[in-house]
Design a protein around this nucleic acid. Sequence first.
DNA 1: TAAATACTGAACTATATGGTTCAGTATAAT
DNA 2: ATTATACTGAACCATATAGTTCAGTATTTA
Lengths: 118, 118
Amino acid sequence: MVQYNCPPLDLSFAALSDATRRGIIDQLGQGDASITSLADTFQMTLTGMKKHIQVLERAGLVVTQKVGRVRTCKLGKRGLGAEAEWIEAHRKLFQTRFEALDEIISELEKEGNDEPAS
Amino acid sequence: MVQYNCPPLDLSFAALSDATRRGIIDQLGQGDASITSLADTFQMTLTGMKKHIQVLERAGLVVTQKVGRVRTCKLGKRGLGAEAEWIEAHRKLFQTRFEALDEIISELEKEGNDEPAS
DNA sequence: TAAATACTGAACTATATGGTTCAGTATAAT
DNA sequence: ATTATACTGAACCATATAGTTCAGTATTTA
């Protein structure tokens, strides 16, 4: 039986499934930030923000470094390559599947630009 | 022609964060399947598989239809467009960030330990 | 030295997830 | 009419998540 086990994707997709964490990535894309400034931006306690950062760190999406009393967070070098690969590969799979059912799909789409569901 | 009835990214990324569910998508890419055959493939109870399918359905990644006593699962028309968009946009963000902070990143990698030994 | 700042960890709450078993219902096959 | 098949729902379990408060420690700053 094929093993579909892929821990890094588990961790990164789980990390991306939270709007606050996606927001943190947005924010870090603008520049590095401390836990305090992120907690302030997202109106959350320091402890709560630290947990989000830990989730992002475990997924390799963020790295942090503590200098003095300030922990600075930045985007991880790992990036989103593996996730992009999986998504792209399977996006094609979806499309292929629909092409195989082209006659049915195109018929449905002719009935309206949106969902044909009544 | 992108997303119309698009459930939030929260739901789809959460759905993709489980290896079994990613495997189900692989499987459905090969052809439609019943709950029973999927449960068999992934060595799981029917009830367990039904829960996974429900998660995928809520995310819009899978649609199902019950005919007689068999519920057939197939890939949802929604696809992975919204997810691909988010990932691609942010992948560029990561890259831009690294170019800007190349020297700092390499310094981080040299240190490795950010916790003072107390 | 004293006080403010920045973070950390433990503990708690509430809810979700991933899985099970068990007891059904509806449908198909014999 | 029986029986087997396919699914469904409720209930349960263990663990994880998303957040909090509270009590610290370590580091600046005044």
